[in-house]
Design a protein around this nucleic acid. Sequence first.
DNA 1: CGTTCATTTGAACATGCTCAATTCCTGTGG
DNA 2: CCACAGGAATTGAGCATGTTCAAATGAACG
Lengths: 256, 256
Amino acid sequence: MSQYVAQQSSLCQHCAMSGMCFDKSNTKIVSKSRSHKIFHKTDALFRAGEKFDAIYILRSGSVKASLVSGMGQEQITGFYFPGDLLGLDGFETGEHSQTLKFLETSSVCRIAYSELDAAMANSSSIRFKLLQGMSEALNLDDKFILNSHCMNASQKFASFLLNLSEKFENRGLSSHIFDLSMSRVDIANYLGMAVETVSRQLTQLQKEQTIDVNKRRISILDIQRLHDCVNGDKLLSNQFIAMPKTRMSHHAIASY
Amino acid sequence: MSQYVAQQSSLCQHCAMSGMCFDKSNTKIVSKSRSHKIFHKTDALFRAGEKFDAIYILRSGSVKASLVSGMGQEQITGFYFPGDLLGLDGFETGEHSQTLKFLETSSVCRIAYSELDAAMANSSSIRFKLLQGMSEALNLDDKFILNSHCMNASQKFASFLLNLSEKFENRGLSSHIFDLSMSRVDIANYLGMAVETVSRQLTQLQKEQTIDVNKRRISILDIQRLHDCVNGDKLLSNQFIAMPKTRMSHHAIASY
DNA sequence: CGTTCATTTGAACATGCTCAATTCCTGTGG
DNA sequence: CCACAGGAATTGAGCATGTTCAAATGAACG
């Protein structure tokens, strides 16, 4: 029996849907083999408008999800990492509304909708896991909207780095040294700012010795400083200072 | 039997989960009675941090959903209208992450999670409807992020009005005359701009005879004009004019 | 009525965008 | 291996949008 355990690849350890592949005791593979597939940088898992018939779990690598506006503007709505669920946008209309492009060589695990539906019929925990995954995606989006509206450029950028750091840590990777799989343009697009602004944030943080930047490799030197940035303490001591009447604006805090 | 049909209140006609209350033929109530409840303006359906044990369907009235940032900033993430699913944020952690406040006297239909789970176990169509509802919420958020990042103030505001108009139309109400149940401050917060900017957008559109504003009552006089605004044609004729190299920015178009 | 809150309006200023030019990589082919 | 081309990233300077601040007006409610 132990050889079956071995088949629970390390790639599966953070999978949201591991319950579909392993029984509760996690000692045995219970269901059909999943269909795994490798993709390369710039490949698309699917594009907006394509038929939806499966969800996917990212096993390795990274992906960006994007939308195009009526005017042809692309907007990146998220970056995804191993263990994340992909394709949840497709349930609404039966067509995907997003386009998912790989940022590096990656592998995904495909779960056909028919298979998913059958699993949901049988297992309350599978039902819950999927709802949980979708709820998480929803809450992430909402937090992102909050940040988009309440933060200025440096706050948003610091928040972005900390989010990445946390994601890597949760996946057992280094939280303070990591490579960005996305370009500066992608980051700018995602955060809703100009590329030039992203670049300036990087150089600024490097000058301050908060991070070290080498090409796409980021080393976080002072994580507390990043947290302070998020809170808007660009130049303040760590002492509490009475805030001005807090309006909704991005600039309320930055004006110090 | 016809008296049972009568119990399918007109409030239920747009309900996303109507499948839980009526069988396929829609001629007979099949399940336990739902628990309906009336709320008043400023009441909260639930607050961030409260235990999640049910989802809700708005039967009448309107609600705003909001999040609070670490710094106490409130961010409205959405407005909801009859037929909309509420409480989907709670699956992630078992606690609500949002706060839902009523904007006017409203009624909701409560579906306990246990009941929902049982219904999902039995019915593929219920499973699908719920996933569809969550997927729709997700896509809405993503489109909103796109708009937030790609549009300037007047585009965002015109888009907001058109979205409302469409929502009212889908619910059988007038698409060109309606009352805003939310304050200017709420609108500003939602759209990520200052109240003053919202006010200026309103007066601007009124001056142009695009809409008529009377307190919270909006009359859309020229809906095509609003669509044009969304597309950034603030001052242009309807002829196509070569756009400048389209960068991501809000101001790319507005600079005409 | 008078207090309070919501909304509007005006004027100045700041953040972050646009534009333009340069530097730095990467990969490709001679 | 080096030169070159094309893309990615950086840097500087001016400017526009939309915010901030201040004040006035209007509506609502006791």
